[in-house]
């Protein structure tokens, strides 16, 4: 029993857990050790193994299978049926037609006649602007939080990595505060940047945390580089993977940001989120919505592929 608890206490103190949890963990097993052996003897005598040992793993695996199906099936069905002629019935029928894609993108003979390409381009440009602004805003504060220890650091950290104001509220407040510029591209850009900055700060911060920042900075400084030069030409390039990953995540999320856009967007050209909304909520057919949503799926898949090429596990801000 004592041989069991002592290595745990050692490992627990090096792990992320706080001291309380380790104490709780140690005390539960401490009080539990005797009863476990007694229970084991009893169980061996009549059943051989506990129910959870027999069925625990199949049940959990079943739950994981159901969750995976729940998350993937609608995406796959939507994508596949965007190429189908009919969506009634259990499975879509009549492949392959590009009619819905044409309609959604504005080249169809009926349905939404508006050409969607200018809106898409506009939206992607705004997202790119927000992304660039995010690099300029997010990388410095991520470096300050990772490198230095200063007054109210923890509070600033929480503030920078959590989206504290929901997009809906920010949108309403924005157009009232800046009646002239709130509905402009600049307003959208600033809003996207603020709403998505936590993803940038977290991704870049986890990249910085894996580096020995003090040593890097001091080596560069002792070799004669000024502080700005040491940061810009030595440290920032080292974190480029994190910065690029953060840029892709913020870009993708900004491209389809709805809650803020819905309140702020002025109509022409239509941002991508409003294009999705128009194709989902207002008198668009089921299959047409499928095609509209699939346009965004393609964007997300492209982003995830690039992120994986950069060594990230999809939309995760953690450093690998």
């Amino acid at each position: 029993m004592t041989g069991d608890t002592s290595p745990r206490a050692d490992d627990g103190s090096t792990a992320v857990e706080n001291v309380d949890t380790v104490a709780v963990a140690a005390s539960t097993t401490g009080s539990d050790g005797g009863s476990v052996t007694a229970a084991r003897n009893r169980r061996w005598s009549w059943a051989g193994r506990a129910l959870s040992t027999l069925f625990g793993r199949p049940i959990v695996t079943g739950i994981v299978a159901i969750v995976t199906a729940f998350l993937t099936v609608p995406v796959l069905v939507a994508f596949v049926s965007s190429f189908a002629e009919s969506g009634s019935g259990v499975l879509p029928t009549g492949f392959v037609t590009l009619d819905h894609w044409r309609q959604v993108l504005g080249f169809g003979e009926y349905g939404v006649r508006q050409n969607a390409i200018p809106g898409l381009t506009y939206s992607l440009l705004i997202a790119t602007g927000g992304m660039i602004l995010n690099v300029l805003v997010g990388v410095p504060i991520a470096y300050a939080l990772a490198r230095y220890d200063f007054y109210a650091r923890n509070w600033i950290n929480t503030f920078a990595i959590l989206p504290l104001v929901p997009g809906l509220i920010l949108g309403i407040a924005f157009i009232q505060t800046y009646p002239e510029h709130g509905r402009s591209s600049l307003g959208l850009l600033a809003g996207y940047c603020l709403l998505k900055s936590p993803y940038m700060v977290l991704t870049v911060q986890s990249s910085f945390q894996s580096m020995d920042l003090v040593r890097l900075e001091e080596s560069a400084r002792s070799l004669g580089a000024s502080w700005p030069r040491a940061v810009l030409t030595v440290i920032v390039p080292q974190a480029r993977r994190g910065i690029v990953a953060g840029a892709i995540i913020t870009w993708t999320l900004a491209a389809a940001e709805f809650n803020f856009t819905h309140k702020v967007a002025s109509g022409s050209p239509d941002p991508f989120a409003m294009f999705l909304y128009r194709n989902i909520a207002t008198n668009a057919s089921y299959l047409q919505s499928a095609a509209a949503v699939s346009v965004y799926f393609l964007i997300v898949v492209a982003a995830i592929v690039v992120l994986q090429l950069l060594g990230k596990r999809g939309f995760s801000t953690a450093h690998q």
């Binding site: 995976t68 709805f258 989120a273 995830i304």
Partner: peptide
């Protein structure tokens, strides 16, 4: 499958539920 939906806005999730 678990990381993909993080990128989806609420309106798309609503559509996927109707799917």
């Amino acid at each position: 499958a678990v990381s993909f939906p993080i990128a989806l806005p609420g309106i798309v999730v609503a559509y996927l539920i109707t799917v």
